[in-house]
């Protein structure tokens, strides 16, 4: 692709192509979800992985072709990566406490109780939906 900042160049065709690609990707992420829903298949893993893989690709397309981040000064991209890295640090530091309900010599009884009751209610309700693990 040529430099979108070149003066007076019209890139609308290119942008429309990207937009079509984005819509196609959206459909791709929907297909497994619809199949799972219609056929009552227990393929939550596939559904979730496809959906997030597609989300990352879509985000990349928007960042590269709409925001032109790849031809911006390098430090802008690094700034965003740093911010994302801080969020990973945050989740990494917090998840042993919040995501898990037990650890080395501790248990979170309240959270466990809520999960147990929720799972029981789900069984009793008979939603027939695949459980997510």
């Amino acid at each position: 692709m040529s430099d979108p900042h070149a003066p007076h160049a019209d890139h609308s065709k290119h942008y429309i192509k990207i937009w079509i690609a984005l819509l196609v990707l959206l459909m791709v992420s929907l297909v497994p979800a619809i199949i799972a829903q219609q056929l009552h298949l227990n393929i939550t893993g596939i559904v979730v992985v496809t959906a997030f893989a597609v989300a990352f690709i879509k985000a990349y397309l928007v960042i590269k072709h709409f925001m032109h981040l790849t031809i911006e000064k390098k430090y802008v991209g690094f700034l965003f990566l740093t911010m994302l890295a801080f969020m990973l640090v945050f989740v990494g530091g917090v998840s042993p406490d919040v995501m898990k309900h037990e650890g080395q010599r501790w248990t979170n009884d309240a959270a466990k109780k809520v999960v147990d009751e929720g799972m029981k209610a789900e069984k009793a309700g008979g939603h027939g939906e695949p459980e997510k693990h």
Partner: peptide
Amino acid sequence: DPNKGGDPVLWQHLFWF
């Protein structure tokens, strides 16, 4: 609120982060 599936420790993390 842990009784509703939340977590009070999460606030402490959000705050001290």
